[in-house]
């Protein structure tokens, strides 16, 4: 069992003329929770999508648990079923109930038997606190509930790593807590997580390491304590100061 779940090396991505990612490299160890912070529009979401190849990077390599997933010969669908992704806009399948949303990956991608898939799906929904909402449709659920279902959907696939793309940014303030709670529990249970977020409280208390990104490069990387109290770069300090002012330390 290797220590390194995710290794990202020299990722570059251009959109037309604009270079969004200018050579990103970092690693995520098994069981680690890494939070990526930085000003909006600096390529954080693009980075996540480059990792599971939803957006293929222009340059660079990614390894998942030792397998080089940027290799063209690799079956990317198989890889994606081992990486979970939670989107800012939830992206629950609109025509399926909560149960079916969680179940469909199991039945149609992992080709599980219906009974087994149902049991597993129910378990994951209970785990995120929505055991009683299995027959609800996404449009009938609140934002926080939808996001939790989407986490259950990712969890059901038994991923090696979950990517969170600003999971609480589209939520009403009072619903952020329920989602963060689920994420905190996941971190405690040892899930490997890479989270892009503005939630400084979460970053400060749960992250093993924080990555500060700006303009497509990593400015600084380190333990939360260190970044918050003794940042190596001026920019890091400025940003953290501003954002803690703005958002407070919610989500504890």
């Amino acid at each position: 069992m290797s220590e390194m779940i995710l290794k990202v090396e020299d990722i570059h991505k251009n959109y037309r003329e604009l270079e969004v990612l200018k050579g990103i490299s970092f690693e995520v160890k098994r069981g680690e929770t890494k939070v990526v912070i930085g000003p909006s529009g600096t390529g954080k979401s693009t980075l996540l999508r480059c990792i599971n190849q939803l957006t293929p990077p222009d340059k660079g390599r990614v390894w998942l648990d030792g397998v080089k997933i940027t290799d063209p010969k690799v079956d990317i669908n198989k890889i994606r079923s081992s990486i979970g992704m939670v989107f800012q806009d939830f992206n629950l399948f609109a025509h399926l109930t909560a149960l079916n949303n969680v179940r469909i990956g199991l039945m149609k991608v992992k080709e599980m038997e219906k009974r087994e898939a149902t049991d597993l799906a129910m378990e994951e929904l209970r785990r995120v606190g929505l055991g009683d909402k299995t027959s609800s449709y996404p449009a009938e659920l609140s934002g926080g509930q939808q996001q939790r279902v989407s986490i259950a959907r990712a969890l059901a696939m038994n991923p090696k790593l979950i990517l969170f793309d600003e999971p609480t940014s589209a939520l009403d303030p009072e619903l952020i807590g329920e989602v963060l709670e689920v994420m905190i529990n996941l971190a405690k249970e040892g899930m490997t997580m890479l989270v892009v977020s503005h939630e400084m409280g979460f970053a400060r208390s749960v992250a093993n390491e924080i990555i500060f990104m700006e303009h497509g490069v990593i400015i600084e990387e380190g333990a939360p304590q260190q970044l918050f109290t003794k940042p190596k770069h001026k920019r890091t300090g400025e940003f953290l100061h501003k954002i803690t002012e703005l958002y407070g330390e919610s989500g504890k």
Partner: peptide, 27 residues
């Protein structure tokens, strides 16, 4: 249908064909 639906389907490992069959077509 929002592009997010296709993204989500691919993110759990569905091939384009499966995503069309199970997620896009029904909607």
């Amino acid at each position: 249908i929002g592009v997010g639906q296709m993204m989500a389907a691919r993110s759990i490992g569905m091939s384009k064909l499966k995503a069309i069959q199970h997620i896009i077509l029904p909607q």
